Computed example of a mutant assay.
Amino acid sequence: MSVPRIRHATLDDEETLARIDRRTWSPLHAVQPRPQPPYPPFYTERFGPRDHLVAELDGNVVGFIRLSFPTSLACNAHVRQIQGLAVAEEARGTGVGRALLRGALEEARRQGARRISLRVLAHNTPARGLYESEGFVVEGILPEEFLLEGEYVDDVLMGRTL
Rank of each mutant, 00 (worst) to 15 (best):
S72K: 11
A74L: 04
A74K: 07
C75I: 06
C75T: 04
C75F: 09
N76I: 11
N76W: 13
N76D: 10
A77C: 04
A77G: 06
H78C: 05
H78S: 07
V79K: 02
V79M: 02
R80V: 04
Q81L: 06
I82D: 09
I82G: 07
Q83S: 13
Q83T: 11
Q83W: 12
G84H: 02
G84T: 03
L85K: 11
L85C: 14
A86W: 02
A86T: 08
A86P: 15
A86V: 07
V87H: 06
V87D: 06
V87E: 13
A88T: 03
A88R: 00
E89F: 05
E89I: 08
E89T: 10
A91K: 14
A91I: 15
R92K: 15
G93D: 12
T94M: 15
T94R: 15
T94K: 15
V96P: 07
V96M: 01
R98P: 01
R98G: 09
A99C: 14
L100N: 13
L100P: 15
L100Q: 12
L101T: 08
L101N: 08
L101H: 09
R102Q: 14
R102A: 13
R102E: 14
R102P: 08
G103I: 09
A104E: 12
L105E: 08
L105W: 02
L105F: 02
E106D: 10
E106A: 09
E107R: 10
E107L: 12
R109F: 04
R109S: 09
R109D: 02
R109P: 09
R110H: 12
R110P: 00
G112K: 01
A113G: 04
A113N: 00
A113S: 03
R114D: 02
R114K: 06
R114E: 05
R115N: 01
R115H: 02
R115Y: 00
I116Q: 00
S117Y: 08
S117M: 09
S117C: 08
S117V: 15
S117N: 08
L118P: 00
R119P: 07
L121G: 05
H123M: 10
N124V: 15
N124D: 15
N124Y: 15
T125R: 07
T125H: 12
T125A: 12
T125C: 06
T125W: 08
P126M: 11
P126R: 11
P126I: 12
P126G: 12
A127N: 06
A127H: 11
A127W: 09
R128N: 15
R128F: 13
G129W: 11
G129A: 11
L130I: 13
Y131C: 05
E132K: 14
E132H: 11
E132A: 15
E132F: 06
S133W: 11
S133C: 15
S133R: 14
E134P: 14
E134K: 10
E134C: 12
G135H: 05
G135Q: 03
G135N: 10
G135I: 01
F136G: 07
F136S: 05
V137L: 10
V137S: 09
V137I: 12
V138E: 10
V138D: 09
V138Y: 08
G140W: 02
I141A: 03
L142R: 06
L142I: 05
P143I: 06
P143N: 12
E144T: 04
E144N: 06
E144A: 11
E145A: 14
E145Y: 04
F146D: 00
F146W: 04
